[in-house]
Design a protein around this nucleic acid. Sequence first.
RNA 1: GGCCCCUUCGUCUAGCGGCCAGGACGUCAGGUUCUCAUCCUGAAAACAGGAGUUCGAUUCUCCUAGGGGUCACCA
Length: 568
Amino acid sequence: MSSPPSVTVTRFAPSPSGNLHVGGARTALFCFAFAKGRHGRFVLRIEDTDQKRSSDAASLGFLKDLEWLGLRWDEGPVFEAPDGSSIGGGDHGPYFQSQRLEIYDAAITRLLEEGKAYEAFDTAEELDAARAAARAAGRPFRYDGAAALAMSDSDRAAARAGGKPGVVRFRSEGRAVTIRDEILGEATLPAGEVDDFVIRKADGFPTYHFAVVVDDESMGVTHVLRAQEHFNNTAKHLLLQEALGYRIPVYAHLPIIFNPDGSKMSKRDKDRALREAVVARGLEAPPNGRDGLPLCDQATFERWRGDKTVQLPGEVCSAIAEVLGVELPEINVEDFRRSGYLPEVLVNFLALNGWSPGNDLEKFDLAFLCERFSLERVVKTPAKFDRAKLLAFNLDALQAMDGETFLARLRAHGARYHPEFVARIGEANFAILAAASHPRSKTLDEVFRGNRFLVEPDDGIAWERTKAVEKALFKGEPTGLELLAAAKPELEAVAADDWSASSLEARLTAFCEAREVGNIGRIAQPLRIAVSGGTVSPPIFDTLAMLGRASTLARVDRCLASLSAAAS
RNA sequence: GGCCCCUUCGUCUAGCGGCCAGGACGUCAGGUUCUCAUCCUGAAAACAGGAGUUCGAUUCUCCUAGGGGUCACCA
């Protein structure tokens, strides 16, 4: 059943090698918005024609990320969303290219029969040599099909029988091709630019170019929105479409998203960040994980440490970073989710890289984007991904929430990424923590990362003698430590069943006034250090309330004992 | 290197022949605050360069420079 041409159909066609990264997410977002805004269909197709690089686990990861962003596909792999609803399916499947081999073969057979494609039996070595020769001569390599074309049927039969793996190449005849693009305009690749490219690999799988063209046709795709790096490829696709008698979809090539330094965003950035940290610390061996075993073997670690081109598996990279306390740059959608960004914020921010609604409007949701998105307003220039602005957007969105929503979303994030923390802190205290953190958090995750002291055992608190700690504890008259000792009886005077932020505040405010120590900060800071080990925590009375009477007093005692001795 | 594309504050962008070139993030300077963060005021900050076209160019054309993409049996 094919769609009437009046229906807009877009598709997002990732290859499942790795995770969905923000560039891909932005492409998917625009595809989604464009289709939805025109009451069309958004198709998801998995381009797994590279057997070496594809894996089932990776393709499933994509689905989860897209769903999280709110980009539900109308057709594609079937996926059960967390809310129990089902996404995907459709009449144009299968949606995994690896399951569509017969379809491609039929089309290739047709081209072969019509003389628009031919078999070739060049070895990788021969091709490499030809490429090297072209390079040495200072000209670009273009495949010369003369020899393959000159083969007779019996030559080919002999080659096949001899077990020589052959490929099928498209006969482009070196024609000039004009590409029409909704964003970039019109461009002509001169004759000779497109050579006889491979359409079926020796392993029997189609190449990307061929599969894309066949699938876009059979899935009724009317608009191809994809990254600008595909612009030149369009010439090949146009040639194939003409040879196969297909419709030509509208093309729109989206600007690429880069790192702030202009490099491509990729997993490599994580390896680089981790390697720098490892080298800076002089680490010679892989650290141990929670189970006490090294996170990877010594040889792998050394090779990775010394060679910038070597990458560690993603999980190993993250695990080592976590043990070392190194923050890796977020690259994949999952990374941003783990870091505590909101999906609606990521959607909003991603849309702003390459598109804007005009009129100085920056904050909007997915529905607005669907309604307003248009190709005319997509810019031509590549964007550099600005995490600082994303962070500011996230803060704004967090602050715009009501307390209840913040609590619910914080809880969901905690359940997913910090289950032990959530279990230990308990329901009532979690609510206090959420309320106290709400006005001061830029991400969901920092609430958990920054407040570990709340769930540590009392004797697990260690006091680092940083400058800020020294100042708060040992400077002034009286010193912070002396004030802390003096305030201890005040804390003890608050009964366990009266232990709340408000009673503590009343008590300690009175204490400050009586002692004429002035600002409440004079006692807040020593207390904060005593109970948390550091100089940063939620407002002090909330902090003490969450800790409870016993823990607070135990920690103050330990602090006094440990640091008074050190001071003298 | 060949071919293709691109060029407004540090960054994301608005602008579609006549604007004191606007907004946001960031930065800087003040202020509020028990830490952190938030919050409030204010400021600095851009049309890559050169020729044209035009009464008039950020806007149109060309050239130069710079940036990007692509030249696989990867997508």
